[in-house]
């Protein structure tokens, strides 16, 4: 059982999220951007960079969890 699935509206929400993201990606092609560093001028930078960043954060958190966790005192409930 998936513990924190957003049911029963999970599927619908998922589709809405993806559609909105796609729409925004398309919209991003038509708005003016002012890249400062080069990399922020890559297509869809504001979409793929946060995704990559969050995935790396989760990986890092897993590493931390292995090294520093779990805590076994009154804080580690």
């Amino acid at each position: 059982m998936r513990l924190n699935a957003l049911y029963p509206r999970g599927e619908r929400l998922w589709r809405v999220l993806l559609t909105a993201l796609l729409l925004m990606l398309v919209a991003g092609l038509f708005v003016e951007s002012h890249p400062h560093f080069g990399i922020d001028g890559w297509p869809g930078f504001n979409a793929w960079f946060p995704m990559l960043a969050c995935a790396v954060l989760v990986l890092l958190a897993r590493g931390f969890h292995r090294v520093f966790g779990p805590r076994e005192d009154d804080d580690g409930r």
Binding site: L21, A47, M51
Partner: peptide, 13 residues
């Protein structure tokens, strides 16, 4: 648009 891209992409991931 770029801020909405960031928020939606974060929600997707």
């Amino acid at each position: 648009v770029f801020q909405l891209q960031l928020l939606l992409a974060t929600a997707v991931v």
